[in-house]
Simulated assay, not measured.
Amino acid sequence: MQLLTSLSRSSFALTLFAIVTAAVIAVTQVGTAERIDKNEREQQARALYEIIPKDQVSNDLLESGFEFVSYELTGSALPATGYRAMQGDQVTAVILPVVAPDGYNGRINLIVGIYADGRVAGVRVLGHQETPGLGDKIELKKSNWILSFDGTSKAENPNSWAVKKDGGRFDQFTGATITPRAVVKAVGLVQDYFAFNRAKLLQLAETKTPNNDGQESH
């Protein structure tokens, strides 16, 4: 009987310990997940407002997300999230994600802001694995190279939308041409996508044209 009682007590203690441990882990995971989510949102908001400053918008960029699908931009058939910048009820710019799959060490994740007139509002790098001291100069904290896109438009001179080594307007890095070439190409793809989908992205009303009997058609 003493042995059974001892075993019963030990089993109860182990069960209680397991329950308490599981509860502590669960609470820790929830708290950690909340902190990670908060940090990610703050980082995301910071990147968005670096492209479109707060004094240029009347809406909360982080709350203005919309889903779209573009395998060409993201390399995925799954929905991605873009953002609209507003002034009153008018969309003045959109910020779209794009993946440059052909970086020196793999994928380069970017966001690109495009004004309503098609000019580039700004570009920021969200993630990459490029070589430190060479390809990582695409980061704003490492160099100002990424700012060379500000205010530019591929449509104005498509042939110049390349690095200088390829006859274009953008500088390449000493000893590293592949990385900037991949970023320039990706930013160009975003402009092409915007030009083709401009009305939808800017939420413009469909143009109405009169038909032969004087009635409007869509």
Rank of each mutant, 00 (worst) to 15 (best):
S6D: 14
L14A: 06
T15S: 13
L16A: 02
A18E: 02
I19W: 02
A22D: 01
A23S: 13
I25E: 02
V27W: 02
T32Y: 11
A33N: 11
E34R: 04
K38W: 11
Q43V: 04
A47G: 00
L48D: 13
N59G: 04
D60L: 12
S64E: 11
F66D: 15
E67N: 15
S70Y: 12
S70K: 15
Y71D: 15
E72G: 14
E72P: 08
L73A: 04
S76M: 03
A77L: 13
A80N: 14
T81C: 14
R84D: 02
A85S: 12
Q87E: 11
G88F: 06
V98H: 11
D102L: 07
G106S: 01
Y115H: 09
A116S: 14
G118K: 01
G133I: 11
K137W: 06
K137D: 12
I138K: 01
K141H: 14
K141C: 06
S143K: 02
S148M: 01
T152A: 00
S153K: 03
K154H: 01
A155L: 08
K165S: 06
F170P: 10
T174L: 13
T174P: 10
T179E: 15
R181N: 09
R181V: 05
V187F: 06
V190Y: 12
F194M: 06
A195T: 12
N197I: 00
R198H: 10
R198G: 04
A199D: 15
K200Y: 04
L201G: 08
Q203F: 06
Q215H: 09
